[in-house]
């Protein structure tokens, strides 16, 4: 094929680096994308008109680490002020429903499982993950590694996975480069494997394929799978041109995955064999976050948010 494609369109107008992105359908409104910036704003962009729809300052000027839309026009935001807030947008303006503080000072994003109604939050000690019941903000359990609450370094990335028996599990990547599979109900690590030499920065997992991909601060991209005995087995390790990946995202059809690079490039790989497929250049600074759309009308659209304050949209391998 020819030269790599250009972005489909770009959203400019944010004042801070984009830290988190999420495609949202919006029950009454048109489909939009939710972005959280380093300057403390959560912004909603209309995908139809490609214009900024609304801006909310949610953490008193502290940077947004993570924002996630849950149903009914509610969204959760996590700020650098160590607070997690839940907001309601449905009445046309933004109201706080609930707020609670947590004790970590890291950069780790929280993660939310709608199915289990759980929120995973980095704990007070670096290697600890706290699990909260979302509605009541009550702590269910604290996942402390056997080796010690500081042994694995900071927790860097988390992802809820539900295993075959429908018990909630959590994949967590740590600063020492290991990835652990936690059984939440039994509060124990099912398996932990050191996948990277450097800190894990991004990971994603396909439940149907039982395979996951992780990127780290070094120049390696790893794929691994979880076998029947719930053990993590490393599969392929790929060397990238430039070191540093801040996010990994697998598309819903399990065909391709995208990585966000510190070198400001987005890389596309085939999910099966990690075959390098494309290197997308547009951004001028570190790419922070990626999201693949599952929305109707925008299938497979890839969005990337970067430190250069732009959000780029790409349509790639969508005609298969």
């Amino acid at each position: 094929m020819g030269t790599s494609p250009d972005p489909l369109f770009v959203l400019r107008g944010s004042d801070g680096p984009i830290n988190t992105l999420q495609f949202c359908s919006g029950s009454s409104t048109e489909p939009f994308i939710l972005s959280g910036c380093g300057n403390g704003l959560v912004q909603l962009w209309n995908l139809q008109t490609r214009r900024l729809q609304s801006t909310v300052e949610v953490h008193d000027g502290n940077g947004i680490l993570w924002a996630n839309m849950i149903d009914n026009g509610k969204f959760i935001s996590q700020g650098r002020d160590c607070r997690i807030k839940c907001w309601d947008l449905s009445k046309g303006h933004c109201d706080v429903i609930s707020t609670f503080s947590y004790d970590a000072a890291g950069f780790c994003q929280c993660t939310f499982s709608k199915k289990a109604n759980m929120l995973a939050v980095p704990g007070k000690e670096p290697s600890v993950v706290d699990i909260y019941k979302f509605e009541t903000a009550e702590k269910i359990s604290s996942l402390v590694p056997i080796e010690g609450a500081r042994a694995l370094g900071m927790v860097m990335r988390m992802k809820f996975v539900s295993s075959s028996e429908d018990r909630p599990c959590l994949l967590a990547g740590y600063e020492d480069g290991s990835i652990a599979l936690w059984d939440i109900s039994m509060v124990k690590i099912l398996n932990r494997v050191k996948v990277h030499n450097e800190s894990v920065m991004g990971l994603d997992y396909s439940i149907s394929q039982r395979r996951g991909v992780s990127g780290s601060a070094d120049d390696k991209l790893s794929s691994w799978f979880v076998n029947e005995a719930m053990e993590i087995k490393c599969e392929t390790k790929l060397t990238l041109t430039n070191a540093g990946i801040s996010d990994v995202n697998i598309r819903d059809d399990d065909r391709i995955l995208a990585t966000a690079g510190w070198d400001s490039r987005i890389r596309i790989f085939s999910f099966k064999k990690l075959k390098p497929l494309a290197v997308l250049c547009y951004h001028r600074d570190t790419v922070h976050c990626l999201a693949f759309s599952t929305l109707q009308g925008y299938p497979g659209l890839l969005a990337a948010g970067s430190k250069d304050k732009h959000i780029s949209f790409w349509s790639i391998y969508n005609d298969l």
């Binding site: 020819g2 041109t241 391709i256 099966k272 391998y317 298969l320």
Partner: peptide, 18 residues
């Protein structure tokens, strides 16, 4: 055909070390 093979890679010559 292996399902990966229909994903034709783009030109990646611009992917150089920063």
């Amino acid at each position: 055909l292996d399902s990966d093979d229909d994903l034709q890679p783009y030109d990646m010559s611009h992917d150089v070390k920063v």
